[in-house]
Design a protein around this nucleic acid. Structure first.
Length: 600
DNA sequence: TAAGGTAGGGGCGATTGATC
DNA sequence: GATCAATCGCCCCTACCTTA
């Protein structure tokens, strides 16, 4: 305004320089837990220096998953250097810290490997194994600077997922060289020496894959012995054999033993192939002391898996197949109920939000909050909840029926006893979940759940609404006094479902003309009946009005007669008080008549 | 934009087999 | 022998992606 030129005191940096500065201020920290939050990372590193921002990059192979490494941008380069030189431990695990550019470089490599593997995945049902093998191949080829097609490399894999797979594997291991030869026979362009050389190159067992056969289990593992040795850290390393896929059971035992007692049976051979990707064998060969122990193992970030924190702590589902554990205790039941109530309402989470299932969360809640010994797997908890839910639902019905009787002078305890008796009569079994019912009965989530069930039943049973109710339909029936107090948290229909519904209705309209005609006829009849009713009511109303007016006239006539009588009374011979009364009444009447008469 | 396909996930009944 | 935890398979629902 005063004519003086103003400008920045400090010159703006060029974009490239900004990025460069950002790079030196940003460090990558790993391994972090899969469900780690931005705030957690920020507060953790905030203890050491001022944090500008935190990023949680996704995995290169699966964008739904956190890659296990967080990028922390500090306010100054000095801060970044200071933290980089620190030896930080999070959740008992020493964090590996590196500059962002190093992390980016590794990530670019990984992306390339994943891309290669995607193109080279075979068409058979063992895509995962192949992809994993190909990734390994890609890496080694890259290291050697001599890219080779994956199919040219030696691949000792089990080719059948059946029970013989272990046998196949051991055979394959024993006859490695001969297999190599066989492979080479298939591909005449290669010779045995070349193959062996390639196997030797692959001393680093690198794998990166995803367990897709079971939707719950994502497994990204990367065993990088070469790197580990170089770093010299003391994290877990699985012994890796010259053949990339073969790990001895002793080595695995050694790895798993750090997290709990591992039982090994005597059967089976000494080698396992692609354990992590196809390895149901693991269940048979190794037994953790508890399923949760196993879960704990998979929660540990180890070098078995640089990004193993992505693996859900759910492993126990098949760990002790066929072994029935002890009965559920009241505490366990209550904790399951509590876990269910505390878990998210929306059980179907979008993929990009969280790959964990609601039962995984319930499982974690259960084991995090237990103050007793329990090794239940998520499947056990789920099954138990199903039992609890069913029984409590039935009991609610019984209790509602007892309530509906409106018995006077009956305490709540008596009602519960009666409901229990009714339950026993109806279901030939005693109700064993009173403790759960007490926990659940007033909880909004439970009430919403019950209501949802009820509406579902009503809608599905609407065509036969007059049909006799089943005990269960009575259970959740209109007498459920709690039903009105809930907030409707039911999810709306999805687009597709809504369209289906619309289409169905449209189709019904188009196709069923006859039924529409019948409906119209019925409606006309109904209308006629309604009109008749209305006429009847109107007639009654008019009659009633007439009757009222007649009564009113009668009353007026009687009143007039009375007034005339009062006016004609002679008060001369009456006692003074009586005379006074009549005079007052006569005056009143005169006033009334005078008021209504036109004045002159 | 609608339709079709696929994947993820839950519910539920039947079955199995260990425990009571 | 009864009970009940664990498992399995089927069905249904929803969201997302691809294709016409």
């Amino acid at each position: 305004e005063d004519g003086k030129k103003i400008g920045r005191t400090t010159k703006l940096l060029k974009p490239g320089e900004v990025i460069e500065q950002l790079d030196v201020r940003t460090i990558a920290a790993s391994p972090l837990e899969c469900d780690v939050k931005l705030e957690d990372v920020e507060s953790f590193f905030g203890q050491f220096a001022k944090v500008n921002s935190v990023r949680l990059p996704r995995h290169v192979a699966d964008k739904r998953l956190f890659c296990g490494t967080s990028l922390i941008e500090f306010s100054t380069e000095d801060d970044a250097v200071k933290v980089l030189n620190e030896s930080l431990v999070d959740a008992g695990i020493e964090l590996e810290l590196k500059l962002e550019k190093d992390f980016d470089a590794e990530r670019a490599k990984q992306a390339e490997v994943v891309e290669n593997s995607c193109f080279q995945v075979g068409s058979n049902h063992k895509n995962i194994s192949n992809a994993e093998a190909n990734m390994s191949t890609g890496d080694s080829a890259e290291e050697n600077g001599s890219p080779e097609p994956a199919s040219d490399n030696v691949d000792v894999q089990k080719t059948d997922g059946g029970p013989d797979s272990t046998e196949n594997v051991s055979e394959a291991a024993e006859n490695k060289v001969s297999n190599d030869t066989k492979d080479d026979e298939d591909d005449p362009g290669e010779n045995v020496e070349e193959s062996v050389e390639k196997v030797d190159v692959k001393t680093g067992f690198e794998s990166e894959g995803k367990e897709t056969e079971d939707g719950d289990k994502y497994l990204d593992s990367s065993i990088q012995t070469g790197e580990n040795k170089a770093k010299g850290n003391e994290r877990l390393t699985a012994a890796v054999y010259k053949n990339k896929d073969i790990v001895s059971r002793e080595d695995l035992k050694g790895v798993f033993q750090k997290f709990g007692t591992v039982k090994m049976d005597s059967q089976g051979d000494a080698y396992y192939t692609n354990l992590f990707y196809e390895g149901s064998n693991l269940d048979d060969q190794f037994e953790m002391e508890s399923s949760y122990q196993a879960g704990q193992y998979f929660n540990q970030p180890t070098d078995l898996s640089v990004e193993s924190s992505q693996i859900p702590a759910q492993m126990g589902s098949t760990m002790k197949k066929g072994l029935r554990s002890h009965n559920f205790t009241t505490e366990e039941d209550n904790l399951i109920v509590s876990a269910w109530l505390n878990s998210s309402l929306d059980v179907v989470l979008p993929n990009e939000q969280n790959s964990k299932t609601s039962w995984q969360r319930i499982y974690e809640y259960f084991h995090r909050n237990k103050n007793f010994t329990s090794h239940r797997s998520s499947i056990s908890l789920k099954a138990r909840w199903a039992t609890i839910k069913l029984a409590v639902n039935k009991f609610i019905g019984c209790y509602a029926q007892i309530e509906a009787r409106h018995q006077s002078s009956v305490s709540e305890q008596d009602k519960i006893l009666q409901a229990m008796l009714m339950y026993r009569e109806m279901h030939q079994a005693s109700f064993q979940f009173e403790h759960c019912w007490n926990e659940l009965r007033y909880q909004p989530k439970w009430l919403a759940f019950v209501q949802k069930k009820k509406t579902k039943k009503l809608s599905s049973a609407s065509p036969c609404a007059s049909s006799p109710c089943t005990p269960d339909s009575i259970n959740l029936g209109e007498t459920d006094a709690q039903g009105d107090a809930f907030v409707d948290l039911e999810r709306p229909l999805g687009i597709k479902a809504e369209n289906e519904r619309f289409k169905r209705h449209r189709n019904i309209e188009q196709v069923d003309d006859n039924s529409i005609a019948v409906l119209i006829k019925e409606m006309k009849v109904e209308k006629k009946q309604m009109n008749e009713k209305m006429e009847l009511l109107e007639r009654r109303y008019v009659q009633e009005q007439k009757r009222l007016s007649i009564m009113q006239m009668q009353f007026q006539m009687e009143q007039q007669k009375e007034e005339e009588r009062i006016m004609s009374v002679d008060t001369t011979d009456m006692p003074p008080l009586q005379a006074e009364y009549y005079k007052c009444r006569q005056k009143e009447i005169l006033d009334k008549v005078g008021g209504s008469m036109p004045r002159e």
